[in-house]
Amino acid sequence: MTDTATRATSNTITSVADTTTATGIGLLVVRIGFGGLMAAYGAQKLFGWFNGPGWQTNADGFTAMGYNPGELFGTLAGLSELVGGLLLVFGLGTPLAAAIVLGTMINAIHVMWSGGLFPSDPAVPGYSTPLLFALVAVALAFTGPGRFSLDAGRPWARQGVVLGAIAVGAAVVAAVLTLIAKAVL
Rank of each mutant, 00 (worst) to 15 (best):
V184E: 00
D18K: 15
R154N: 05
W55E: 07
V111N: 14
V172Q: 07
K182Y: 06
F118E: 11
A157K: 08
A141K: 03
G33L: 09
V29Q: 02
T6M: 12
D60A: 12
P53W: 03
M65D: 10
A183N: 03
G35E: 00
F62R: 02
L92H: 06
A98R: 08
G160S: 10
L163A: 15
A22H: 07
A99S: 13
F47R: 03
A22P: 06
L82V: 11
A183K: 04
S114Q: 14
V161Y: 14
Q159T: 10
A59T: 00
E81V: 04
G116I: 09
P95V: 02
S80W: 09
P145A: 15
F142C: 02
D151M: 09
Q56A: 12
F73M: 06
F142H: 03
A39V: 02
A152I: 06
G35K: 03
A157Y: 07
F90D: 03
G160P: 07
V101C: 07
G42V: 04
V136S: 05
G85N: 08
I166P: 13
W156S: 10
W156G: 05
L72I: 11
A141Q: 05
H110C: 02
G26C: 01
I100A: 09
E71I: 13
E81R: 01
V111E: 08
V176A: 12
S120R: 12
A40M: 12
R7D: 13
L46T: 01
K182H: 08
A167N: 06
G144I: 09
G66R: 05
V168T: 14
A170C: 13
P53A: 12
A165W: 02
L28H: 06
S15H: 14
E81H: 00
T4P: 01
A170N: 07
V161C: 12
W49K: 11
A170V: 14
A170P: 06
F62W: 05
L37F: 11
F118L: 14
Q159W: 13
L117F: 15
W156P: 02
P119F: 00
N11L: 15
T6H: 14
G74C: 05
T63S: 15
T129D: 04
R147Y: 04
I25P: 01
G26S: 01
Y127T: 08
T104P: 07
G74S: 06
F142R: 06
L76V: 15
L177Y: 06
N107W: 03
P125I: 05
G126C: 11
N58D: 05
Q159N: 14
I109W: 13
M65S: 10
A137H: 01
G144A: 11
T12I: 09
V111F: 14
T104H: 09
A137I: 05
A22S: 09
G85C: 07
G61W: 01
G48M: 01
P130Y: 10
Y67E: 09
T2P: 04
I32K: 08
I25Q: 01
I13Y: 10
G153F: 00
T75S: 15
L163T: 15
H110W: 12
F90Y: 05
A165R: 06
G144E: 07
E81M: 03
M38K: 05
A167H: 05
T143V: 11
N68M: 08
T178N: 04
R147L: 15
L79Y: 00
Q44V: 01
P69S: 11
N68L: 11
A99P: 07
G160A: 06
A108H: 04
T104D: 10
